[in-house]
Design a protein around this nucleic acid. Structure first.
Lengths: 339, 339
DNA sequence: CATAAATGGTTAAACGTTTAACTAAGTTAA
DNA sequence: TTAACTTAGTTAAACGTTTAACCATTTATG
């Protein structure tokens, strides 16, 4: 048989289609006897309501759009992938589908918006990572409930899920301080990014609390993007400027890997000559040597949390501004050592 | 204004909604003049047809389901992620949305099928990687057009996209032979998997062609899963059995990494004492040392190809059985050396 | 000039649900 | 006994499209 419809079920149960619908929605008007009869028919046909028909009358798509920039999606580290998995997982629980799409990181105002926005095929939007302001402005016109992950848009009334970067920065730096380090460098990229800047602030706070003077020469935040090769360049500048560094805190693992490469090339032994700690915990399967100490971000959990907020938001039990900080965790591995 | 509908457009253009629809579908009956008028109105409202309404009348969802097992999705290497990106990319071109879902690798017949199948919310299914036979059997009842990626289901009438594993196995082995190696070991896991077995066959073929005798003691295909820790164990067995190995071909990069770990631990220098070559090219960003020679699989391209096949399949210009082998490529890096 | 054919558009049914409004029958209360 | 409720269901409109069938003009044909 072809796809069974509510009519087939109604006929079989000898009731009207309205009754079938009411049963499906657990309407109190329907007594047990009728309910059972209808449910039996539903079962017999293995009937499920058509998504499109429902969408049409309810003016809901049942879909949540997941947006991130192409470059983020193509990154080899599974950072945003893990976040996506989290949303996907929680979507199950809330009976949503997740539609993923990428946008150009250099979004121009003439660029088309993702099709699912134009077609009103999503009930909500989850935006992961930094996206162009122009994009945000343009979608604002559509008034779609939106949750951000790992990015705090400038407009102050957003719902956002972030890792606790400030605490992470403190934690990483304190870890080095407790290991006896005093000459602790910081490497950052894309310093405007709210997460990065907080890590930097955490670094400065920890140093200050420990009575260590913040030295401009120990800080390199020039790079515009926190990637591996930029980590290499930053380490190069830093070391050339400053021979007595005993530890480096990089704003993420990718930069840490680049920095490690430079140190190795230069003959500086890790961790014996120099400790290094990253952020994110994305280096897969301990494949790098020495294994990298880092601050773990709960990536899947961030996705889960975002989708939970979305569900609340769509049920209207959420005001339009909320910032959720997810706890981070220090992971001590081989790249940091007591001095 | 709230979501504009075809009615709004029709009113503004002073035509019937049928005319608007015909314009949208580029029907030849409509002359330029009318078309322009309607298009102007469409533009004025920034109108896009409702996805649900269309789906309802066309009996099409416009969605393609992407299915893989949970464990595959959670793997840290971006293998299936890259494939997914490929399908997503090509989906854009064909105006599809991709709905991703995972299934339990130990799918029981009592388990529920993915919701999008039950609700008939997908027009086609792309299944990536090995999935339980029971699952395949169960979805067969729904008669949904299906394309497989990186897995050849036993039923012979499938449409499948695979890397050319046989040629890859030959290529990898020949590379080692050309480098003067004669004692070449093979490490495999999940040897029943069509891709793995082909790599193994390629290995044997290359040895035979080179007049090298195939030695059972040089082969370890015991492990049930081709992962990192199993690569470690396999290397251990192999080395203990057999001291004169000068090169190893592992069925994938994950096992190669595990094997490298064992060799390093044991004090065997790579590549000086032993060359090693993997398969897949998933080791991110040259993070491992020495950098791993491997056979590159065109992962994104596999996704793209699968979605193209799906588009053809849905347009009915494709018979129900087709096997597409995508070309692989030898990547020579640091882990293989001339003897 | 009468008729056939081409052109350009409209009408209305259909897709599969949801739900407000209604109805019919049974129950309660004064 | 009768009016007022309650209960259990049905009817019908609506959601926003698509498209076959139809109609009215205009143009071509013999």
């Amino acid at each position: 048989m072809t796809n069974p419809t509510i009519k087939d079920v109604a006929k079989k149960a000898k009731v009207s289609i309205a009754t079938v619908s009411l049963v499906i929605h657990n309407h109190k008007r329907i007594p047990q006897k009728t309910k059972a009869k209808v449910l039996a028919a539903i079962d017999a046909f293995n009937y499920y309501p058509s998504h499109s028909a429902r969408g049409l009358v309810n003016r809901k798509s049942g879909n949540i759009g997941f947006v991130l920039t192409e470059d983020h999606f193509l990154r080899t580290e599974p950072f945003y992938t893990q976040i996506f998995i989290g949303t996907e997982f929680e979507a199950h629980a809330n009976e949503f589908y997740v539609l993923l799409t990428t946008i150009n990181p250099n979004f121009r105002s003439s660029d088309k918006l993702p099709r699912f926005i134009l077609e009103r095929n999503v009930d909500g939007l989850i935006i992961a990572g930094k996206v162009p302001l122009l994009f945000i402005k343009k979608i604002n016109k559509f008034n779609i409930p939106t949750v951000f992950i790992d990015y705090l848009p400038p407009a102050k009334n957003s719902i956002t899920v972030l890792p606790d970067s400030f605490k992470g920065g403190e934690l990483a730096t304190n870890h080095l301080i407790q290991y006896g380090h005093k000459e602790i460098a910081f490497i950052g990229g894309d310093i405007e990014h709210p997460s990065i800047i907080e890590r930097f602030n955490g670094y400065k706070k920890a140093l200050k609390d420990a009575g260590i003077k913040i030295d401009e020469r120990m800080i390199d935040i020039e790079e515009s993007y926190p990637g591996k090769s930029n980590g290499f360049s930053a380490a190069e500048r830093l070391i050339n400027k400053n021979k007595n560094i005993t530890a480096i805190f990089t704003c993420n693992d990718a930069m840490a890997i680049g920095a490690m490469q430079y140190l190795k090339d230069r003959g500086i032994k890790i961790p014996d000559d120099c400790s290094i700690i990253g952020f994110d915990d994305v280096v897969s399967d301990n494949v790098i040597e020495p294994e990298l100490s880092t601050i773990r971000i709960p990536k899947m959990e961030m996705g889960v949390e975002a989708m939970k907020l979305m569900a609340d938001l769509l049920k209207k039990n959420l005001k339009e501004s909320k910032k959720v900080l997810l706890p981070i965790e220090l992971i001590t591995r081989e790249s940091t050592i007591r001095i």
